[in-house]
Write a protein that binds this DNA or RNA. Structure first.
Length: 426
DNA sequence: AAGCCGGGGTT
DNA sequence: AACCCAGGCTT
């Protein structure tokens, strides 16, 4: 840059003293093209960028990091290679392939959307952002991402990485969650995507956001956009975007009941509106303020079990305590053995079933459900998770242990010596 | 416009 | 334990 032509910096169009997009847009796009051409990561969905593959990747990537998605993406595409295969599958099998990825509603909506694509769009994903956004699970971001990346439509995107990037590039100090700020951010994103290669530009924006313009200590020295970055010019890059509110956590105490009968376990499918809707789980109930070691807890559990499953049971010993974090909840789950007390054929409808250890491997289970299943079948019984195609090396080889606040931690109860005094160490 | 959805990973 | 993540949906 010469002294007579000071470097142009990105700002919100029409803001006081702000440069018009015409000034910085070509610089931005050109810098992104050059940088992305050299630095783009080699990701599975960039090798196979069919509309279907892009769609699956974008749904999996919602609120989920790239590294966590990769093995799921590969297994999922191997099993459901196209829209027709996905639409033809049972929802439960789709959920089984999603197990461990979280936000299971995404999988159910994806499956429902696949059936809509077969029914209403001749089996082809619609090529416009507006039509895509009519499908379940596809919002403004995902619609723009698929439209631009898979179809070359100049549609804008805004997500965690580009929100942070734009707040810095344009030195946006207002609360980024406010709708007036969101409007400005989408406006900037629209300018950027207005070109002949919007898919490349959108991906490059996200890539710079995730690889260079990181939340803490952005690597401005390696940033292709440093020259036009307003925050860097003002020295504000470490203070933008403005942080949001802290999440307040809620402690929950719950009980899970493992009802045994002839080597099988009683499981139920979580209903719509419940936690883990569509997934299977051991019957569970809130413990409220009940002491998990009190006399009254067993009657409490037995009553709940009848209501949930129709099975009359006799509650036995506590055998494990599982800690599990989910969204803003911190759950402590007390796990009890139980036996069935009635010989009636209760508990055999479509949402309540007696499950053998072998069948357990095929069922989509909640995280804590899978944890309990492992405790029950740890000794030599098969775990289908390890038989899924191209096994996930991260999750299966070295399952995360003893996460503290989040994830799940298990502590087994010591061997039980009498019917009383069973004490859990957590 | 704001919170929830009832996740999971990293630091 | 705080913070983050290729958001969607509801109220």
């Amino acid at each position: 840059m010469s002294r007579h032509q000071p470097p142009v910096r990105i700002s919100i169009a029409n803001s006081p003293g702000g440069a018009a997009p015409g000034d910085w847009l070509p610089v931005l796009q050109s810098a992104l093209r050059g940088w992305f051409g050299r630095q783009a990561r080699d990701l599975p969905w960039r090798r196979q960028c069919t509309p279907y593959a892009v769609w699956i990747s974008e749904i999996m990537l919602q609120q989920t990091q790239v590294a966590a998605v990769i093995p799921y993406f590969q297994r999922f595409l191997a099993r459901f290679p196209d829209v027709l295969a996905l639409a033809a599958a049972e929802e439960e099998e789709v959920l089984r392939y999603w197990e461990g990825l979280g936000y299971y509603r995404r999988a159910r909506q994806l499956h429902a959307a696949a059936r809509q694509v077969i029914q209403n769009h001749q089996g082809e994903l619609p090529p416009t952002a507006a039509a895509l956004a009519n499908l379940p699970g596809i919002g403004r971001y995902t619609a723009g991402a698929i439209a631009s990346i898979a179809f070359g439509v100049p549609a804008p995107i805004l997500e965690a990485n580009t929100l942070r990037l734009w707040c810095r590039l344009a030195a946006i100090r207002s609360d980024p969650t406010r709708s007036s700020t969101q409007e400005k951010l989408w406006q900037l994103a629209s300018h950027a995507a207005h070109c002949s290669d919007p898919g490349l530009i959108n991906q490059a924006l996200m890539e710079v956001g995730s690889q260079i313009c990181t939340p803490r200590s952005p690597n401005c020295g390696a940033c292709p956009l440093a020259n036009i970055c307003s925050a860097r010019h003002l020295g504000l890059q470490a203070r933008l975007p403005r942080p949001g509110r802290k999440t307040r956590y809620e402690e929950l105490r719950e009980a899970a009941i493992v009802v045994h009968d002839q080597g099988r376990f009683l499981l139920r499918k979580c209903r719509d509106g419940e936690r883990w809707a569509g997934m299977w789980d051991f019957p569970r109930c809130p413990l409220e303020q009940l002491d998990h070691d009190s006399a009254s807890v067993r009657g409490h559990l037995a009553r709940h079990c009848v209501l949930l499953t129709g099975a009359k049971i006799k509650v036995g010993p506590l055998f494990a305590t599982v800690k599990h974090g989910v969204t803003r909840f911190r759950i402590t789950l007390y796990c009890y053995h139980a036996t069935r007390a009635n010989r009636l054929a209760a508990a055999c409808d479509s949402t309540t079933r007696w499950i053998s250890p072998e069948e357990l491997a095929d069922l989509p289970l909640s995280v804590t459900g899978r944890k309990i299943a492992r405790l029950l079948t740890r000794h030599g019984l098969p775990d289908r998770t390890q038989r899924l195609p191209s096994a996930n090396p991260i999750r299966e080889a070295a399952a995360p242990q003893a996460a503290i606040g989040r994830g799940a931690a298990v502590s087994r109860s010591p061997a039980r010596r009498s019917s009383r005094g069973n004490r859990d160490r957590t």
